[in-house]
Structure formats: C-alpha cells, structure tokens
C-alpha cells in the first residue's frame, strides 16, 4: 500500500452477526478493504455473500438486532462505536449511499424535489427551504434529468426506473460527499438504461473526485469502471486487487468462475458458463475453505484447513492454490 496519504475509507476485520438469545451467526466474517480518495472500488459477490450487509453496517445502518465488530475508518475517524448523532452527521453529507431499487427507495408520497431538498436541508442548518429547492433543481440538472424545474414537483411513480435512479444519485451527491457507496445501482434496471446510469456515476465520480464503492453481482459491470476489485464469498473477501490484473490473472477459483460467467459477445460459445451450486447458508459453512464444495480444483486440504491469504502486496487471494502456487504443506493438519 502506498504510504503517506490516509485512505479515505478503511475497513478492517468487519464482522456482522445476526441471531437471538445467544445464538449468533455471522453474515460478514472479517471483511477488510480500502478505498483511497477518488478511487473506485468494486465489490462483487453473489446474493447473500454479505457484501451489502457489510457496507450498511459500516455506516451504522445494519438491521435491528445485528452485532457489529471490527474497525471502519472514514478519513481517519472510527465509525464503529460512534454515537448515532455523529453517524447521522456524516451520512448524506460526507458519505452517501444509494440502493438497488429506486422505486421502493424513494418515498412514494413525497415529491422528488422535496426528497432531494431534504438531503440539503438536513446538513445545512441555515439554508432556507426555497434555496434548498433551488439546489434540488440544480442537482436534477446535474444528473441530466430533462426539464428539472417541472419535474422537481413530480412524484416518484411518475418517473421511469432510470430517471428515479438519477434522482437517488442527485440526492446522494447533494452535499458533495467524499465517498459514495452504490449498492447494486443498476441491477433493477433495463440493460439499456444500465449503461446510462453507470455513465452518470462515472461522470460524477470524475467531476467531484468521489471515492466510489460499487457493489454488484456482475463482474462485467466493473471491467470498465473500477480501479480495484474485491471479491466476496460467504462473508469474506476471497480476492482483491487492481482490476486489470484481477481480470488478467485471477488468483482465486471463484474469481475465475465469475469471469468465465460473463457473457462474451465476441467469442462463439455453446452455452453460458455458470458456477455450479449455491452459496452456503448462514451458519452452516463447510469445514475448511467455504468455497470447496463448488470448486473445480478442490483437494483434501481445502476441505479441512481454512486457506490463508496469499499473494503480493496489492493483489491477494484466500486460496491454498492461489496464483497457481501449490499449497503450503506444513499448514495441513
């Protein structure tokens, strides 16, 4: 890691556990990652891998009854354990988050303008509501919504899916945040619209020098967008590295599987590839490497010993046979 500059967002051994009456199961089992100022980090994993829960928990938005441990530092400030008021001050102003389904993520009985203006009003105590509304119009224009002064008084159901997501983005960048976390921002949208939204995000990221965390289950989306990628499986980061090297020389079999699943328009293939099997349910992880039941290269050691993190400084993978290196036999039981 380059020395000197403090990372914008640094997560270390984040764990989130659910349960009741003493029985707790971890959905996030020690996730560590870093985002630098102006950097785009992609987090990829299947549904249920814990990637969304981790980011929600990092901002203090985890569901009722969840236990969060570990360290999350934002510009050097520790977020885990911070007071609710402190977190509220950061959320929506310095750190913002947008979600997957813009229809259900927007209040159906409030106008779009009121909701965007609210983001402004919440963090600028002196501002008048008229000024906030003006800013809302400016923000709608920023995300390329046509006729913003008219549309600002419309309700969410009067917008198309793509437009709604632009509204969400406008709300998120209202106070010029340093970090934006986008949780599957295009999953609920049509394919044609997906590209547009990703473009909006990319533009804003460049213009505002935003740190951006892109959560997705589709590795292909990250190819042109991310600087670095973290692959999550069963609540842990199983590989992370610069996007180009990750694609060119993936260290973890899961990553290889994900890459192979990306539909490739240029090469003629008979069938679409997908990884066999499904992710393990919470609390019932296999012994050893959590991926071993679905891995094509699994060996004995994989079924008994949890793999260590291997690899070079900025590209690591948690596999006994990462990067083609044979397993360290003295790790075997």
């Amino acid at each position: 890691m380059s020395g000197g500059e403090t990372p914008l967002f640094e997560v270390r051994d984040l764990r989130v556990a659910f349960g009741r009456h003493g029985q707790f199961h971890e959905a996030v089992r020690g996730i560590s990652l870093t985002v630098r100022h102006g950097e785009v980090l992609g987090i990829v994993g299947e549904s249920g891998s814990g990637k969304s829960v981790a980011m929600l928990a990092a901002l203090g938005l985890q569901p009722e009854g969840a236990r969060v441990t570990g360290s999350v530092r934002f510009k050097g400030q520790e977020l885990v354990g911070m007071s609710r008021r402190g977190l509220r001050k950061l959320r929506g102003s310095r750190v913002a988050m947008i979600f997957q389904d813009p229809l259900s993520s927007l209040n159906p009985v409030m106008t779009v303008g009121a909701q965007v203006a609210e983001a402004v009003l919440l963090h600028n105590s002196g501002i008048s509501s008229r000024a906030a509304m003006k800013r809302a119009v400016e923000l709608l224009e920023l995300v390329a919504i046509p006729q913003p002064d008219r549309r600002v008084n419309q309700y969410p159901h009067e917008f198309s899916g793509g437009m709604r997501q632009r509204v969400m983005i406008a709300m998120a960048v209202a106070n010029d945040p340093d970090l934006l976390i986008a949780d599957e921002p295009t999953t609920a949208l049509d394919v044609t619209v997906q590209a547009q939204i990703m473009q909006v995000l990319a533009d804003l990221q460049h213009r505002l020098n935003l740190g951006l965390v892109l959560i997705t289950h589709d590795l292909g989306v990250l190819a042109g967008q991310a600087d670095r990628v973290a692959v999550v499986y069963a609540g842990q980061v199983v590989e992370q590295g610069p996007v180009d090297t990750l694609f060119a020389a993936p260290g973890h079999p899961y990553t290889r599987g994900l890459i192979a699943s990306i539909p490739n328009m240029e090469v003629e293939k008979e069938r679409l590839f997908s990884i066999d099997g499904t992710p393990p349910p919470l609390g019932r992880l296999p012994a050893g490497c959590p991926f071993n039941p679905r891995c094509t290269q699994t060996r004995d050691i994989c079924r008994s010993v949890v793999p260590p993190v291997r690899g070079a400084a900025d590209h690591t993978a948690a596999c006994h046979f990462a990067f083609g290196i044979s397993a360290n036999t003295d790790n075997a039981a």
């Binding site: 985890q62 569901p63 969060v68």
Partner: peptide, 8 residues
C-alpha cells in the same frame, strides 16, 4: 468492540 448500532 461489540456495539449495537441499531436505530431505536
């Protein structure tokens, strides 16, 4: 640290 950050 084990602190619950639930809303209410």
């Amino acid at each position: 640290m084990t602190i619950s950050l639930t809303a209410p």
